[in-house]
């Protein structure tokens, strides 16, 4: 699929899709979306990038090996549950903080958010692993 149109547009498209996937991830708690869907969007973005421009640029762009990304996500999700243990509540109980970064502006932070970011990373990492391995030539 080495066409000029694709090669020109896809890098832009990939960037947009990744940003969008992060938006979906963060907005997911109140609006449609979440880590799983966001992860799928980002994974298809990277898969598309790989098809258009080859695997090497994707690997360079990701910097980390996709399996490591997935494993780190797994770790993050599991750790979000461990935090609850330290607070003396059952594993994976949601905990919330509302730090005020400016006057009147609260940023809700929570262990479910951390968990969801972990899910996002696992989905992206695993699917990109498969897609890139398949796209790679022998």
């Amino acid at each position: 699929m080495n066409t000029l149109i694709l090669r020109t547009i896809v890098p832009l498209l990939t960037g947009l899709m990744v940003i969008y996937s992060i938006v979906v991830l963060l907005a997911g708690h109140n609006d449609p979306g979440g880590g799983f869907i966001g992860g799928l969007i980002a994974a298809s973005a990277f898969a598309l990038y790989g098809i258009a421009c080859g695997v090497a640029p994707v690997r360079r762009a990701l910097y980390f090996h996709p399996v490591s990304i997935a494993a780190f996500g797994m770790l993050l999700s599991a750790l979000s549950g461990v935090i609850s243990l330290y607070k003396g509540v059952p594993f994976l109980t949601g905990l919330w903080w509302f730090p005020e970064i400016a006057k009147g502006v609260e940023v809700p932070l929570s262990t479910p958010l951390m968990f969801d970011i972990g899910v996002w990373l696992v989905v992206v990492g695993s699917l990109v692993t498969i897609a890139l391995a398949l796209e790679e030539k022998e």
Binding site: A70, G73, M74, P112, D116, V119, V122
Partner: peptide, 28 residues
């Protein structure tokens, strides 16, 4: 407000933890 997501990451988070483990193993 998104019930589906709240179920996934909070009410039923341990199920999701199992599912992402499966996803990771599948990838590897």
């Amino acid at each position: 407000r998104n019930i589906v997501n709240v179920i996934l990451v909070d009410f039923r988070a341990i199920d999701t933890l199992g599912e992402i483990t499966v996803v990771l193993i599948t990838g590897v």
